[in-house]
Each structure stands twice: as structure tokens, then as C-alpha cells.
Design a protein around this nucleic acid. Sequence first.
DNA 1: AGGAAGAGTGAGAACCGTTGTCAAATCGTG
DNA 2: CACGATTTGACAACGGTTCTCACTCTTCCT
Lengths: 129, 129
Amino acid sequence: MVEAPRNTRQRRAVAELMEDLDGFRSAQQIHALLESRDQNVGLSTVYRTLQALADADEVDALRSDDGETLYRRCSRGHHHHLVCRDCGRTVEVEGPTVERWADRVAEENGFADISHTLEIFGTCASCRP
Amino acid sequence: MVEAPRNTRQRRAVAELMEDLDGFRSAQQIHALLESRDQNVGLSTVYRTLQALADADEVDALRSDDGETLYRRCSRGHHHHLVCRDCGRTVEVEGPTVERWADRVAEENGFADISHTLEIFGTCASCRP
DNA sequence: AGGAAGAGTGAGAACCGTTGTCAAATCGTG
DNA sequence: CACGATTTGACAACGGTTCTCACTCTTCCT
């Protein structure tokens, strides 16, 4: 049995903020957003808390093209993302076909302990002329 | 018309090394490998050369989970990778099914100008106990 | 409630991959 | 060969992230 994390003002602030956001944000953006809500939380703590939330599968983390880690509250379970590259709006998608394909390809080549990353980027309807 | 790059010892050394490797390597690993071949090339130059090769589509670049950019000589054309997370050995794979799935999902959600990233990580047969 | 134990916090330093700087070396053309 | 433009490389700078450690706060026990 793992130790439950303590219920601190900082963790509450981060978790509540994540509830209110609906796109991927960097740790630094989240830190800044907390300040603008007069909920000051140290940058280290923001990083630690987001990692903890990601470990607990309460947020998803993905790496942007320029190397930042982005976080977003997401539904549980394995899924992928369709992300608008203009406004950041994100749709969660599932692809059982893809999962099966990935497993089969890996197995055919003698690979085990498979994981995969799959993200789709595009321009959403409201960001198009 | 773009200016052709000069034919320097350093560029030749990097290009030749990439020919001999068959997995994704970080810029720093490539720099170290060059030293072990007595082909000293400055680290800045390694970075610059790899970026140039990637821009020219002569190598593929992808970001590892821990944020490093990894490079590998690859065949042209759209494909994905099955990468061993221990030894870096890489198999190029194609997934017409996945391509179609991604396009359909994007279209259903009103997204256009689609691109996607898909990499599969696992442990290859020879890296398993 | 009071208090001890120890998890959590945060300011700043450290870290690490990567990019920028600029004087010196090199390429290749005239 | 000589010249000008490109390239190189030692080193500094940068940016995101992690570490450190003294101090704070939660929690649990009585």
C-alpha cells in the first residue's frame, strides 16, 4: 500500500487549476497561472506536483516539439490526442486498431514490453479561415 | 537554389559514421563515437551537422522520453520506428492502416492539415534475459 | 489540545542538453 | 597562390528541469 500524499494548499491549488484548463500547458505556464490567481506556489512544487499527478494518471504528460513537457487533465485509461496546433484544443481519441497493430508489429520483430506514443496534430475547424 | 554545403573533413566524418550506425544515437554519443575513431569534431559542429542532415532528410530525428534528440540514417519516405530502449536498435515500420485511421479520426473531428507522430518502444530479443 | 515525526515546501544553486559567439582555420574559386 | 566567404571549435550563455536543505505544515498519537 502506497502512502497517500498529504493534503496541502499547494497540491489543492494545482489540482483545481488543472480541472479548469482544457488544453496542454507547460509547468511554467501553470506556475504563472497560479500566480495570476493569487495562489502562489513555488516552481519546484509545481514541477513535483505535476509529476506526481502524472504518475498517478490524473494528468497526461506529453513533450512538445521544442522539448517542454506539457500537462493536461485527462480521462483515465489509454488514449491518444488530436491537438490543434493553433489553439491547443485537444480531443481525446481511442484507437483499438492502432493498439493491436503496434502490438503485432512489435511481436513480429521480437520486441517485448511495448509502449508507444501517438499524437495527431492539425488545425481545428474554428482555427481555419 | 540553395547553396551546397562545403565538403569538410568534419561533415564527411559525421556522414560516414551515420552510415555505419543502425540505431538512434544522441548528438553527444555521436560526438564520443567520433573521438573513439580519432576523428575529432567539435561538439557544436556535431550538433550543427546533424541538424543540417535532418533538414535535408538524410537522417531522421526523434525525441527520446528524457528529452534528448536522437538521430539515425533512414530510408526516405514516411515511416515509423520500432526502437529498442536498451540498445537503440531500430526497425522501420510502415502502417497504412494507422495512416488511414489518423486521417479519418482527424476529419471526423473537423481537423485539417494533419500530421502525426508515432513511435513504438520496446526491448528487442537480444536485450532480453 | 499538545507535541513529536517526518513529509512537503521554496529560494536558489546545480544540472544538462542545446544554441550562440567570435576569432581563427579552412574551403574552393578566381 | 590569394582572397573572401564559410565553417569550425572552445567557451559562454540559455532554458527547462531537478536538486538541496533549512524551514513549515500535516498528520498522527496520546
